[in-house]
């Protein structure tokens, strides 16, 4: 007997439903969840600062403050971080005691900024550029470098410099990676410290407003340009040094550079910058 069209349709629908529901659990598309967050996050800032071109968010506070941008452009003509880049280059190529060098650990002559941070599925943790540099040293019998400043910031400054223009495309492909991402996200939005403030409170909710005479940078673009040479520091420093500073300013305990918390935070913050380009190092007040 000929079945009705409706019956056949129902059968097809049932088939599709059973196939979908019997798909293995690991087929959850974490990247799609992250992409949805990224869209929402970036849409917020695009709406808040409609005059800013998307790529310009990589310039931090200077994307939204035309007056400061002018002065900053002038500073960048003779970048204060230039000597650090030169020193970083020397350190990158300098042989370890075993004769190898950092250059032996990295492909593309060290122009690999665009690959970091990433979630290492085997190790089950986020690997940042600074961590990879120290891992390379340790693997070759050298001591790890200070994660806040000094040689490590110079080396990552050099590697970032030769990677300028590389796209940011953080990927979250597994449940473990998503968990690290969520931890970073939680860190960004949670209030902490004696002053009970969150990163989001300042750099999202009140981005562009003035805290005393300081204009608050949008969180979109936070990780694009590190390490930075800060006039206040008088030297080049890492992103995690900045994290520690902002933590301290709200009366919260600053964490160690390359701690799991800061790496997860960097992972989340960099994912939020997906679609922008790395343009570090940069100079800042």
């Amino acid at each position: 007997m000929k079945r009705s069209f409706a019956e056949r349709l129902l059968q097809i629908v049932l088939l599709i439903v059973t196939t979908l529901s019997s798909m293995p659990a690991q087929a959850v598309d974490y990247q799609r969840l992250v992409d949805a967050d990224v869209r929402k996050f970036q849409a917020f800032f695009r709406k808040e600062f409609p005059q800013v071109k998307k790529d310009d968010f990589a310039d931090g506070v200077y994307a939204i403050d035309p007056q400061a941008r002018q002065q900053w452009k002038e500073v960048e003509e003779f970048p204060p971080y230039e000597p650090a880049i030169d020193e970083g280059k020397v350190l990158f190529n300098k042989p370890f005691a075993n004769g190898k060098s950092l250059a032996s650990c990295f492909s593309n002559g060290g122009a690999v900024r665009g690959n970091y941070p990433y979630f290492d599925e085997k190790r089950g943790e986020v690997v940042t550029l600074e961590m990879a540099i120290n891992d390379c040293r340790v693997a070759n019998g050298e001591k790890p470098l200070n994660g806040m400043k000094g040689d490590l910031a110079k080396i990552s400054g050099y590697m970032t410099f030769i990677s300028r223009g590389q796209a940011i495309h953080v990927q979250v492909r597994s449940a473990a990676a998503y968990k690290a991402y969520l931890k970073g996200k939680q860190f960004f939005y949670a209030k902490r410290g004696q002053l009970n403030m969150s990163c989001a409170g300042c750099h999202l909710q009140y981005a562009g407003r003035q805290l005393r005479s300081e204009i608050i940078s949008p969180a979109l673009g936070h990780t694009t340009h590190f390490p930075v040479f800060r006039l206040k520091w008088g030297e080049i420093g890492t992103l995690h040094r900045r994290y520690a500073g902002c933590n301290e300013n709200i009366g919260a305990k600053p964490l160690e550079a390359q701690s799991e918390e800061y790496r997860d935070l960097e992972f989340f913050q960099t994912a939020m910058c997906n679609g922008l380009k790395f343009n570090g190092p940069a100079s800042r007040k």
Binding site: Q194, R212, K232, E248, G251, K285
Partner: peptide
């Protein structure tokens, strides 16, 4: 002392 290091030492320098 967190209370003393307190709010926005960052901003202080520019004042």
């Amino acid at each position: 002392n967190m209370k003393r290091s307190g709010l926005f030492a960052i901003v202080g320098v520019f004042l």
